[in-house]
Design a protein around this nucleic acid. Structure first.
Lengths: 244, 244
DNA sequence: AGGATCCTTCGGTGCTCGCCGAAGTGTCGT
DNA sequence: ACGACACTTCGGCGAGCACCGAAGGATCCT
């Protein structure tokens, strides 16, 4: 195990980046950022290519280690390989130029607004909601950004009040910052971000909107966020009124 | 400035990743990870392409925001746009598959060994040396990894003893972890990592080996590392004897 | 068994993109 | 002014690759 003897000429950065350098494959990965497993056909339809084309791309992504797959009967389920790959896709996406195109339909416009308002990002909350929670936690002294994001002692207590146990010290950083696409401000990621998101879903603060990544804040969630973080509706959805 | 009205269909991940999906451009970025500014011709020769080809690639990388450039007379100096882009390239490189190829010459083999031993990575120290420093700091309680890497109070004192002022709280995280290509273990990055690297170069702990990223530990550095971190030669270069 | 669905394999097509060399522009040194 | 050098522009070539449709498994449902 002497890595000095392996004549490492350097990582094959180009081959790896090429995995994401195709519109179809990038679309797959962005879709998979919702953290769930998709079937091949779902992904194919999502980006509008033939099933055979999707198969080829999925083979590449799995072979490249970006995606993990499980086969169940006639279904091929794929998901992002892990939190680190998700973080990589996030980071790349945050730095990539935005494509600003007019929505193709009213339905698409509504979906876009819902996504901007609140969505899951791999396994944590993003959008205006995710950013608002993060900033409220900072304002209340639950997060400390002096040395990068860190949960304070009060933050640990606060988590406990919600019934969330502080995540065990595994390899995954407890608190990570993830730059939001729509808000261009950071929201909370990492193990704690995931725990909060799970709690929000389990306790019906938010519910999934259809089958995508969009979530919608419930009345329960609105009350809990006000009580626990002092968040008003205005602070979460400035100038908007959340629909059913 | 209501970002919800801009119909953001999502980041153009593919276009951005395509910047790094070419062997020549990836070679440029990996070379620029040494944190210095290179001229177009230097980069062209480094990867072995014509000057005209290099120009085209540099145009793309600059337009894409990955590289920044300054023109001085007949020279075009390019460098990575900033620490965040450097972090992105690092992260991608760490996750990319290694290309293990036999070195083309004795000279190349020596260069590879020198790089594995100690090198700069953008603006901090990497290789066996960088990893050894990071692990020694952890062992001495200067770094705390419980909530992601963080400098402890003793760490701040230790920096002071070296004559390094704790970096101001700018946007850049003071301490960041960067996965080492050759060691596959994390080394210290971020503002503190950069400060330590600068100190190591200023105080002649290490000196640049030629014009590349490789550095070599001096006798001064060897003594200082032993006195300040308890690092023995064995711990820095297991099974090797550093040459002049 | 039969049909529907999900996935895969296999040619074939068309286009993008990286590369070079030659010629041209601007800058530096003498 | 002149050559040397760094860089840029342009035309053309060749390879790689993303795409599709058709055909062939594999699996589930009735």
């Amino acid at each position: 195990m002497n890595s000095h003897d392996a004549h490492v000429t350097g990582p094959d950065l180009a081959a790896f980046a090429a995995l994401l350098a195709d519109g179809t494959r990038a679309g797959f990965c962005l879709a998979l950022l919702d953290g769930r497993a998709w079937t091949a056909i779902e992904l194919a339809r999502h980006v509008g290519v033939a099933a055979s084309t999707a198969t080829e791309h999925l083979n590449l992504l799995v072979a490249g280690g970006l995606l993990a797959q499980e086969r169940q009967g006639r279904h091929r389920y794929v998901r992002l390989a892990g939190p680190d790959t998700a973080a990589l896709v996030e980071g790349l996406a945050a730095m990539a130029p935005r494509t600003v195109a007019p929505p193709r339909s009213l339905r698409a416009a509504n979906r876009g607004r819902a996504l901007a308002r609140a969505r899951t990002c791999y396994d944590h909350l993003a959008g205006a909601l995710g950013v608002a929670i993060t900033e409220a936690m900072t304002a209340r002294g639950l997060l400390d950004w002096a040395h990068g994001p860190r949960l304070t002692g009060r933050g640990v207590v606060w988590l406990g009040e919600l019934g969330i146990a502080p995540p065990p010290a595994t390899g995954r950083p407890p608190v990570r910052s993830c730059l939001d696409w729509t808000e261009r401000r950071p929201h909370l990621a990492g193990a704690v971000g995931a725990a909060i998101c799970r709690h929000a879903l389990d306790s019906d603060w938010v519910t999934r909107l259809g089958t995508g990544r969009a979530v919608v804040l419930t009345d329960i969630g609105r009350r809990e966020l006000r009580d626990h973080l002092g968040l008003s509706d205005e602070m979460i959805c400035p100038g908007e009124r959340a629909g059913g």
